[in-house]
């Protein structure tokens, strides 16, 4: 029996007339890296917001390790082991890099000195230790992405939601990012990652879920998913528009 760490049960979120997530059902296995893909506006970030507690669903339930967390506020979900990054980095710009990470560190370390030590160690893991004293607002965009990841990791999550953390990186930076995600997963953290660059995500993930217009369109092994007719049609529609 595979253990299920997170379950979404027929989750729906409406913004007025727009249905951002429609009847999304999803089961995430402990320890896997799950790719969440889909064209722009498919509802991927919205699903992250629902899982992390930033938004509440219009209907449906979210279960973490079998417990209903649908009504829990975001900080409580964080304490229970869910961490997320934001697609558009949202660093605390009046603080420096290590202070940003310390905020996450307090989830497991109530004392400031311990939270700081944990934050510094986390910065080392993501390769941002040399920028520890820089003001967060002055980081380059790729560095800001790393900071997002570091903050989330500092909360010592069991489930990590990564929203396009590899987007806009140079090939070598992306490679370093992939390695980082592998290392995190090897430590037993379950990862759901949203990514557009197929060449990067597909070799990394154990399983892929495709969202389209708020619905689950396909699900399965990466190799199968990319060959799925409906998925190709959804992406082609977008590629054509973008071209």
């Amino acid at each position: 029996m595979t253990e299920i760490i997170l379950e979404a049960e027929r989750v729906t979120l409406r913004f007025g007339g727009l249905v951002a997530n429609a009847d999304v059902s999803l089961a995430v296995r402990r320890g896997e890296i799950l790719g969440l893909i889909g064209p722009n506006g498919a509802g991927k970030s919205t699903l992250f917001n629902l899982i992390s507690g930033t938004y509440r669903p219009t209907s449906g339930r979210i279960l973490l390790e079998g417990q209903d967390i649908t009504g829990l506020p975001a900080p409580e979900r964080c304490r229970r082991g869910i961490a997320r990054t934001f697609q558009v980095p949202r660093s605390f710009d009046s603080m420096n890099v290590v202070e940003n990470v310390i905020v996450g560190g307090f989830v497991r370390h109530p004392r400031a000195a311990e939270a700081r030590a944990a934050a510094l160690a986390t910065l080392d893991v993501v390769g941002l230790a040399h920028r520890a004293d820089a003001v967060a607002g002055e980081l380059t965009p790729p560095e800001k992405r790393r900071l997002e990841v570091a903050r989330a990791l500092a909360t010592e999550p069991r489930l990590l939601l990564l929203d396009e953390v590899l987007t806009g990186l140079t090939p070598s930076e992306a490679k370093a990012g992939v390695e980082l995600i592998r290392r995190v997963a090897e430590r037993g953290v379950t990862v759901i990652m949203v990514e557009h660059v197929m060449e990067v995500v597909m070799p990394l993930v154990d399983r892929a879920v495709v969202l389209h217009l708020g619905r689950v369109l396909a699900e399965g092994r990466p190799a199968d998913v990319v060959r799925d007719e409906a998925v190709i049609a959804a992406y082609l529609g977008e590629r054509r528009r973008a071209a």
Binding site: A74, R79, M95, E99, T155
Partner: peptide, 16 residues
């Protein structure tokens, strides 16, 4: 300070 800079991001990091 996290609340001042970005309350929503703060909440996702366990800040009450």
């Amino acid at each position: 300070r996290a609340v001042k800079d970005d309350a929503q991001a703060a909440e996702s990091l366990g800040v009450e």
